[in-house]
Structures are given as C-alpha cells and as structure tokens.
Write a protein that binds this DNA or RNA. Structure first.
Lengths: 238, 238
DNA sequence: CGATCAGTTGAGAATGGTCAAATTCGGTGG
DNA sequence: CCACCGAATTTGACCATTCTCAACTGATCG
C-alpha cells in the first residue's frame, strides 16, 4: 500500500465519517463504509447496484455467473482497488468477501457521477480503473493463451506482488484466503485440475499454496520460467 | 451508430479539423485524425504511446503479444469505441487495422488528462470505457467458462449486434474482415479449431462465416442455444 | 504463372474435464 | 480435550475437447 494510496483511503475515511455525523451536502459525493465477514455476499448477481465500490481492506472476489451455471472470477480486488466500474444492472456480477472486508461505497451511476466528483476523489479512482484494466488485460492473456501451470503460477506471482508490494522480492510468503475453487473460477480451470497443478508446482519446488498460505521460494526463477513480468502492476504514469 | 455517438464523432471531427487549420490552444485537447489501410499496424507492441485512441470508422483489433510468441486479441473496436485506456508503455499491446480505418487520437497520458478535458469530450469517453468494460467482462466469461462452439457463436452474435445496432433482429448478415486466425486469437483457440467450429455451425444451419460475410439465419435461436444475452452491449445508464 | 496467404481436412497426441471415492482441515458442541 | 460435522482438498481412472503437425485447395496479386 503506497503512501499515495494510504492518503486516498484516509480521505475517503474522513469523508465517510463526517457524513455519518452531519449529513452535509458538500461538494463531495456521499461515501459509505461497510464491513463484511468472510464468505459474505457483497452484491448478488440479480441485484441492481449503481455505485463505485472500493476496497479499504481484505480480499474480495469479483465475478459473474453465467447462464450455464458456472462462475468466472474477473478479479480479486485488494486494498485500494475498485470492484465495480459500471452498474451491475445488466452484468450478473457477483461480489464476495473472501476474508473480513471493509469497503467504501460511492452511490450513484458510476460513469455519470465520476466527472462531478472533486478531483482528489476522481483522480485516484481513474488510476484504480487503469490498474484494474492492466490486470484484466493480463488475465485475458492467461485465459486465452497460457497453459494451466503457467496460468496458475502467473496468478500466484501477481498476488505476491500485489500483497507484498513491488519491492524487489526474492521470496514470497503470505496468507491467502482463496479456495482452489475460487482459483479455478478465476483461471478457467476446474478445482480438481487446480489441485493437480498446485501439486506439480509444489513437487518442483516452484511454489506452494497450502493451508491458506502461499510460498514462492524463488520469485525471479518462477517468473522467468512462466514469462511473468510484473511491470503491468505499476502504471507507467504513477 | 446512435445519434448520440454520431454527435460525438462530429464534435471530434470539428475539433480535429479546426486544430489542423489554426493551432489554437483552446480549452479542448489536441485531436488528430489518422487514416490507416487494411492490415496496417496502428501501434506496435514495443511502442510507447500515450493517447486515447478512438475509432471513427472501420474494424480494429486490439491485442497483446505474449513472451511465448502468441497473441491474444482483447477487443475488436468498431466506430465509437475506445481502443486504448491506459498507456501502452508496459503492455506489449498491438493495435491493427483489419479494414480501412479512421481513428481520432487525443495525445497525452490518458488517465491524467481525461479530467481536464471539457465535458462534451470526457463524458462520451467514459461511456465508451464503460461499454468496453462490459465487452471485456463478457469476453472473459467466454475464455474461461464456455466451450469453443458457444464461445465462437457468442462472438459472432456480439459482432452482429454491434454492427447492425440493437434493433430487434431476426436475421443478421454483414461483411466482416476478420480472419480465422484473428478470431482464434480473440477466442483463445487455434485457427484450425476455429475452422472446425465454423464448419459445425454452418452444417447445423446456425451461422455461417465465409468469404468475409457473417450470416445468422435465426439470431434468437442461436442466442438462446448458446446463452447469449445482448443486454450487456447497451449500458443501463444510456 | 508462381508465390503467398487464408482456408480446409485428417490422424494422432496432449491437455484438461468428469466422476467418484477417500482424506484432511477447521471449527463446534459436549 | 475429544468426537464429530461439513467443507475443502487430494487422488485415481477414464473421457472429451482441443491442439499439433502436415498436407492440400483455392483465391489473389504482381
């Protein structure tokens, strides 16, 4: 969490708190802070929610349920990330808390309102949208053009960098509340196959994910093995 | 192309033209109009381009080349669609003209500048970003959780709606400059397999794509067969 | 009239999925 | 602390889908 991000979250926090006390129609948008417990559904697929949702802390899964009964996980937003960009009216989007989560909610149609927000609000949101776009793009590359092992390793590496910061890492180790089923829905694999892939990575000493902890003994080695380049995680313009 | 979209393109056109004549530092951004021929590369993967690119007319492929040598096509932007959202500095993005194309270019770091554009410019751009986001989301669903036939049919249906407008269609027929290889790179399939899938769709009388023409005799039937719902193509807020 | 590129087809291989049965893990109540 | 329950993980055997490689056709262009 960079200083810049910390500042922004503090700004949201301050706005949310003050609004909770004296409902002042200032120049800023309404901001609500909400807490969820692990496993709780934040937005269900048939809800019509018009709001920017922003993660203050915790792990979130943002996905979509298809008419064939399956789910695809679009993103795992962490602290400082946007969850929704458009309204969820047409989207069958489903947002879940994977751990205890705090989110900020700026109600209203996202795109319409963004331009009327004060710049200290809108600018960080735009950057967060750009960051998410970078993740999404890389995610599509994984889904479309990488094998299961490569794909899974990419995800673990991406999470490592996002959880631990971009400092030059040699090894990674962090708690991770995803189930293999969550991972599968994100990677376009079955939970069973995710399990086999994780086993392979573990037996080769490349990465392990057991009991809610991810460990990568040599980040650079795994990264070069699967062609992972973390530069997409830090925007050029920041 | 809706009236709203037409208006926006006219606005860009007017701005671009006037800037070409008398370089006036008005309150609006610089706007350039550029033309490309079919097959031309608009932005190559190692270029660092900081600009909003906007399609005025023609078919574009926006993709990404991976370190394993393959390509993934992220989107086929058509008239009124944004091509890039962030800078392409970190992204290995590759933008190609699939037909004769006219694009508008608003130079500068996209996210930083958007908020300083006059609202008649920034508002439609935000909406275009939201539209692209909706397409991307659905695209990820296809890549991750739909079989090859379903996925291909989805793409053909999406293109039908985008080319012909959302009017209640019974049948679709339109020229389409994509190669089977382009389609494969978008769908995460090999060109060979795309060929087999198209053959299957054709033999079942569901859809045909030959000699640069897509034909779908019964749009609703195909849509319900593969679970396609076009509502994501028209934003709720429009 | 070659040359080239998109499309087409076949045969066999590889990757990932399905189904079903353990086994382990994290609580929860006694 | 221990027994138990449900959810998540693990494993095996078999199957389906998609890929790879290779050859061939057909159209287009200089």
């Amino acid at each position: 969490m960079t200083g810049e991000l910390g500042d922004f979250l503090q700004l949201l926090e301050a706005s949310a708190t003050s609004l909770g006390n004296r409902r002042k129609a200032s120049d800023g948008p309404n901001i609500w802070r909400r807490n969820y417990t692990a496993g709780e559904t934040i937005v269900d697929w048939d809800e019509k929610k018009q709001a920017f949702l922003f993660v203050a802390s915790g792990w979130v899964a943002s996905g979509k349920v298809l008419t064939n009964g399956t789910r695809i996980v679009l993103d795992f937003p962490l602290a400082g990330d946007v969850i929704t960009i458009g309204s969820t009216e047409w989207a069958r989007e489903i947002i879940t808390a994977l751990s205890p989560v705090t989110i900020f909610e700026l109600p209203g149609a996202p795109i319409e309102n963004l331009l009327s927000y004060p710049r200290p609000i809108s600018q960080p949101i735009l950057k967060a949208i750009a960051r998410r776009n970078a993740r999404t793009t890389e995610h599509m590359a994984s889904l479309g053009r990488r094998g299961a092992v490569e794909r899974t390793a990419h995800m673990l590496l991406e999470l490592s960098y996002r959880v631990q910061g971009q400092a030059k890492m040699t090894k990674a180790k962090f708690p991770c509340p995803l189930t293999q089923s969550d991972l599968g829905d994100a990677l376009g694999l079955t939970a069973v196959h995710v399990n086999r892939v994780l086993k392979e990575l573990r037996e080769k000493g490349l990465a392990s994910f057991r009991n809610g902890v991810v460990e990568i003994p040599d980040v650079d080695r795994l990264a070069s093995l699967v062609g992972f380049d973390p530069s997409y995680l830090s925007l050029a313009s920041e």
